[in-house]
Amino acid sequence: MTELVKIILFGTLVALFVSVNALFLVWMERKVSARIQLRRGPLHVGWEGLLQTVADAVKLVSKELTLPKEGDKFLYLLAPALVFAPLLAAFLVLPLGPGLVIRDLNVGFLFVTSLTNITFIGIFIAGWSSNNKYALLGSMRAVAQNISYEIPLLLSTMGVVLIAGTLKMSGLVAAQEKLWFAALQPAAFLIFLCASLAEANRAPFDIPEAESELVAGFHTEYSGMRFALFFLGEYTAVFISSAIATTLFLGGWRGPLLPGPVWFLLKTYAVVFVVMWIRWTFPRLRSDQLMNFAWKVLIPLGIANVFLTAVVLVFLK
């Protein structure tokens, strides 16, 4: 029975955190983009416009939900849930502090990587069931991109795993007691950042939803709360990949003075800031440039990194 209570409690907490986090990240994105473009961003609703996203969320909820006439209704309704639900499950393995993990799985972050695959299928279904050529093109680009970038993403984490000797999130944090893996594995850290940007469909890798050519990509036909779910999913994905980057490369919750969860959130939001900074600084890549970058730069670099790490480890033994 206590197990059931725990599940309900953690589920509620995660759901609450996800919505608050998305509201905050949307505000942060607006502020960051505004400052980078020498604007001031939202100012009037709440302090520094903090409540602007709440107002927008209320607007989204009250919007009419439309259904495309020739689309596949069942799949059209299923897709937003399929995109969003796996991201919620990823919170299972995030280590907030010493002993503060919901489940310290043996497979650790691989669990999250496997779940993002279901998100791709959600994106695929969204594009297909809308029966709209822009949506279909967007979803095909999204999936092609995600398949390609998953390889460097996993390769970059392998160096870290080789050093730590475990996939467990708690073990990975423990292995960084003296030195962050970002210092030991700088190449892996950069590859991971690039690949996770691409996995979350963020600029400069946002060709699946390239506004200037594809309207809005795979969620063109979605309105109201269903659209909001995709949006929520995108920001949650950014948070999760930043949190994993923090755990794998930036020492997780370790830090002086402040308690673990505070350090964890500080580092995670710092990575999120870098992600936003990149988005508002670089122009979008072309489709073929994107693929070339994955297959001709990131993957060879990733393999070289794994190889070098293994050689050094063998000689140090």
Binding site: N106, V107, S114, I118, I121, L136, A144, I147, E150
Partner: peptide
């Protein structure tokens, strides 16, 4: 066996099934 489960999802769903979906599309 969490590892096998994760690999099943990554390889069979993430790679093979998605390739099938691509072929259909």
């Amino acid at each position: 066996s969490e590892f096998l489960a994760v690999i099943e999802v990554i390889l069979y769903i993430g790679a093979i099934a998605v390739a099938i979906l691509f072929a259909i599309m």
